[in-house]
């Protein structure tokens, strides 16, 4: 692993896979097919895109003009803010994989993650320039920003759909059905997590109160 870091080919491959993200977002059906079937994507590039997405999201807070984004800094928790991307992503990847693997989905867990991250590419790609652009406009020109910003989200959303369709080798109808099912699976997982944590909390507090009671009696 470490030895491979010294080889030049590793970096050439990494950059090639990263550059392939640009091909994916413009030719989604073809691109996402090749991503897994032709092995033209890599987890390293997917991680890079994810980190760039997180970075864009955090930097937006500070560097977007206050016309578009006023931030109540007292109420910002940077870890929670990052989790607002990471947590749904993790749920989506696990939920989607868990469902599709039961219904002839060809994508593996790593591939679902990789494809989803590749599909996020438009977000950092558009939000970074928009962030700079926002500082050069007035309220009257607000529409340019909001429309472009909206496009980046819709684009990424459509790409995720296309990506799932290609890596699982699904038809369009089946893909839509399983996208909705995956969203439902995410809800179920959230419910189970909440249940789990509240049970744990109650369990711990039971033993704490038991310990206290014993200490009082001593």
């Amino acid at each position: 692993m470490i030895a491979s870091l010294k080889k030049k080919e590793t970096y050439v491959h990494y950059l090639a896979t990263l550059r392939f993200a640009l091909y994916c977002i413009t030719h989604p059906l073809d691109g996402f097919w090749d991503l897994t079937h032709e092995k033209r994507g890599s987890i390293a590039a997917a991680n890079t895109i994810l980190i760039l997405t997180l970075l864009a999201r955090v930097m937006k807070l500070r560097y977007t003009s206050f016309i578009f984004m006023t931030v109540y800094w007292e109420g910002i928790n940077i870890f929670l803010y990052l989790a607002s991307v990471l947590f749904p992503l993790a749920l989506w990847v696990v939920g989607n994989w868990a469902l599709t693997t039961l219904f002839d989905g060809k994508g593996r867990l790593g591939q679902v993650y990789m494809a989803t991250c590749y599909a996020l590419t438009p977000y950092p790609l558009m939000q970074f320039p928009l962030m700079i652009f926002s500082n050069f406009v007035t309220v009257d020109e607000r529409q340019f920003y909001t429309v472009l910003s909206g496009i980046s989200l819709v684009w990424a959303g459509l790409l995720i759909l296309a990506a799932m369709m290609q890596i699982h080798e699904y038809s369009l109808g089946k893909n839509v059905l399983f996208t909705i099912a995956s969203l439902f699976a995410m809800l179920v997982m959230v419910f189970i997590l909440l249940l789990f944590f509240s049970m744990i909390t109650q369990g711990i507090s039971y033993f704490i109160s038991l310990g206290r009671e014993i200490l009082f009696r001593l």
Binding site: F66, I67, T70, F136, T138, V139, D140
Partner: peptide, 18 residues
């Protein structure tokens, strides 16, 4: 204006400044 989030007046000033 930026300190107190007054976007309308800020835009007026910014337009002239630009």
């Amino acid at each position: 204006f930026e300190l107190k989030y007054d976007d309308d007046n800020y835009s007026k000033a910014f337009k002239q400044y630009r």
